[in-house]
Amino acid sequence: MKIGLLIRLAVFLVLVALLIQPDLFQGFFALFARPTQPAIYNQGNLLDITISHLTIVAIAIALSTVVAVGLAILVTRPFGAEFLPVSRTIANVGQTFPPVAVLALAVPILGFGTAPTLIALFLYGLLPIFENTLTGLTTLPPNVIEAARGVGMTGRQRLMRVELPLALPVILAGIRLSTVIALATATIGSTVAARTLGEVIIAGLQSGNTAFVLQGGLIVGILAVLIYDALAGLERWLTARTGQKQAAAN
């Protein structure tokens, strides 16, 4: 545990240094650039690009979460049960659509910029969160739900006080999955002029500068690992608190 914490802290500090003082890594990245090429990305501030990247992902996932959790709640209520199959289909379609195709379709409608990327990430994030919320809400211990009814909670009280809190670790696992996918997928957004770390990678590819590609990739990778790890930790904490077995999601 102690060691794990140290490693996490070290990785986090590397990331911060890379974003604030990329010149510190001049020597390292120079190994991957030709002598005539700049080793550190010079067409924009890495910190700003990263913040923009994270903001796009955060907004998209927040929207996915609201819609997917909302849908899952609706179809697990008695009155919404008949929509269960159809909502599953819709979420599945969202997932099978390649993000590039969504971008290509969205650009003529929404124009270049952040919007098409947001839409693609949003659609892409729906399914894991929807599926997990569904799993979470339909596999609650029956005697606990029975007790919630028996003590006289209304449907809404049962949902807010018992069902959602107990399903939370499983829902979080879905959000974690969607977030990590979105972090990586967002890089494609820079092809339609969204400001994401894809910009750094593409600049590297265009000029044949491996150092740029590496920088972009490294930042996305570290972000993904840290966020994955933090959310997984939160899930473990929530699960342990209620003495449940590790939630059976993914």
Binding site: P141, N143, V144, E146, A147, A148, R149, G150, V151, G152, M153, T154, R161, V162, P165, L166, R241, T242, G243, Q244
Partner: peptide, 21 residues
């Protein structure tokens, strides 16, 4: 109303059904 009725009647079940959180 059913939920009001239930608040007036104690209900205990096998395996207790305590809220684990």
């Amino acid at each position: 109303p059913a939920h009001e009725l239930r608040r007036r009647i104690g209900y205990a079940i096998q395996g207790h059904g305590l809220f684990p959180h």
